[in-house]
Amino acid sequence: MQLTRRNFFKFMGATGASVAVLPSSAQAWQSKAPPDPYGCLVDLTRCNGCRKCEDACSTVNELPPPIKDVCDCTVFEKKRRPDENAFTVVNRYFSGKLDELDKPLPVFVKIQCMHCQDPACVSACIVGALTKKENGAVHYDVSKCIGCRYCMVACPFEIPAYEYHDPITPRVRKCTFCFDRISKDGGLPGCATICPVEAITFGKRNTLLELAKKRIKDNPGKYVDHVYGEKEVGGTSWLYVSSLPFSKLNFPQLPEKPSPKLSETIQHSLFSYLWSPILLFGLLGGIMYKSKKKNDNPQDKGGA
């Protein structure tokens, strides 16, 4: 054991320095949400289940075409989830109300990535392949991805899908918020453009939030008083208003606290500037030095 006095104090010095910077690192967690992102407001009372958004999405993202026969309602018999071949899907639920002909009234729900304001997937991604852009999109960069699927573990909406059947170069697949399109001036997401009834309104999130609340206020009885995505996991860029409670529509019920808050707080208070490892190193070094001196033993070299 070549622990000389000089070496030892060198390390202790480093430890002291790192403890000195400690207070500056112990700030409270701060949201990294962009201040004025774009978003989409999905009005479920407007959606008529035409699934044109699925078509448009697969066209603009060069995905395989959605399940054929857009007007065939059998696709609604099973609840679908977005997957590696479809970034958005529309599901049908029944409200329990009947129309004049005693037919049950459907509610259609389009789902895709919510583009969270403080996305768990972005916080989780080991290499930062997922990033929250200024314009609101949560963007995936395949060239960094290593395929650990921690983003999928983290996402509270169960959105990112994976190309499980690609052995060598699988990708994480999820709605891109048509990042390339909306980055251009006047560009619109494919699904919002095509929606015939404007069930998807594209705009600044702040504007949409007001709009959503105005719609709820101006149409008493039409909507439940809840803008889904306003507060869920700290807010999402995509917002929903609906005539039925969201819990009946398979929307996860989520806390207002951003998912990554706790883990990031712990991580940063423990490891910013690596203060705790350095401290521990110094401490153990001290103990080792002491115990070595106590039973100075020339024999304990090597051996590990």
């Binding site: 972005v122 916080s123 989780a124 991604c125 080991i126 290499v127 930062g128 392949a129 960094k144 991805c145 290593i146 395929g147 650990c148 699927r149 921690y150 994976y162 190309e163 690609d166 060598i168 170069t169 699988p170 990554p260 883990s263 990031e264 991580q267 940063h268 490891f271």
Partner: peptide
């Protein structure tokens, strides 16, 4: 075996996300 792109396992050395717990573990 588990990660999808095993050949990319070196990437965290160059692409850092210090918010990621997995990054630190790795």
């Amino acid at each position: 075996v588990d990660i999808g792109r095993s050949w990319a396992i070196w990437k965290p050395i160059f692409f850092w996300n210090t918010n990621s717990v997995l990054f630190e573990v790795a």
